[in-house]
Amino acid sequence: MAPVRPLALTQGDPAGIGPDITLSAWAARRETGLPPFLFIGDADVLAARASLLGLDVPVREATPENALSIFEEAVPVFSVPAGIEVAAGEPHVATAAGTISAIETAVSLCFAGRASAVVTNPIAKSVLYQSGFQFPGHTEFLADLAMKETGRHVLPVMMLAGPKLRAIPVTIHIPLSAVPAALTEELILETCRVTNHDLKTRFGLERPRIAVAGLNPHAGEDGAIGLEDQDVIHPAIVKLREEGLHVFGPLPADTMFHDEARSRYDVAICMYHDQALIPAKALGFDTSVNVTLGLPFIRTSPDHGTAFGIAGQGIARETSLVEALKLAAQLATNTQPESGAA
């Protein structure tokens, strides 16, 4: 069941594969049952990329209100200029303002009740940093936009959701050497609370089963291989159980991800980036979706980068974007509007 409002799909970096996979996803919309989206970006970039790829995909200026009626015949585009003429595979700092504006516009449309969810095409953080962008990435920027709109602090939680595994890293884009100091009991508590809430209210799980990985080999082996597991992670799990959450661990990460182990939980809480993303991508590289939990609106994204090296060549796979759009529509259907947000 598709939502009654379109999904707001951002352009991402216009020189990357975002336009490519958007066009391919739309072209296969009937075969895949793609929910309708409104592309937030530059219509000229999209039309030029369709021509470069040899795709017969019409592009039409649209609003959230008429996007659904346009979607069957053309890609509806809510215009946000890229800033310069864009060449596929050639990122340029002059496009950064348009990339950021597209994200801001998509979020604003959700808060205004004109779009049902935000789906983001990949950005190039290095390009944005050259323009003065102050956030580590999409996730933190979206949290800041939410805080400005609502006046409430939010903890954004990154989840990789695939057909075989949902995995969440507690710490994300920091050096491995910085993980032990960043890994606090409070951060684990809040991450698990946000996860539990959104799995219940958006994914429809009555009592989510949350498996927590240890930080060290063998989950510390009773302090023989590091103290973080017994001094930081275990106390957090005890508190969460006292709150009524179905949480267990810390578990040795090397035995958490085989078939039988995964059948025992709904989500794996991991201590650092690669501990979560390596199994998630190994088990569903083309089908995993990046979902941001904890926001007052729904946000999904394909689980890959801009891939400048193959942009405009017709070989980028749209599978992850299709899954991201489908999941966003599903979550939008499951979720009741909250505080003016989708």
Rank of each mutant, 00 (worst) to 15 (best):
N196Y: 12
E242D: 15
R202C: 06
A213P: 01
H246C: 09
V157D: 07
E186Y: 10
H234W: 04
E185N: 05
G223F: 07
S177W: 02
A182H: 13
V157C: 08
Q230Y: 00
D198A: 07
V238L: 12
E206Q: 15
I237E: 01
S177F: 03
I188Y: 05
I210T: 06
V194P: 00
L183N: 07
M158A: 09
A253T: 07
L160Q: 02
E242Y: 04
G249K: 01
C192W: 00
R166N: 12
A224S: 13
I210Y: 04
V212F: 05
V194I: 15
I237F: 02
L165Q: 03
A181T: 08
V194G: 05
G162A: 11
A178N: 10
P180W: 13
L227V: 02
T184Q: 13
I237Y: 02
A224M: 12
R202Q: 13
I188H: 05
V247M: 03
I225K: 04
N216A: 07
L183S: 08
N196H: 15
D229S: 13
E185R: 15
T184I: 12
K239P: 00
A211T: 06
V154E: 06
P235F: 09
E228D: 08
I237W: 01
V179I: 14
R193G: 04
A167W: 12
L215E: 01
P175K: 09
K239A: 10
D222T: 05
L187Q: 11
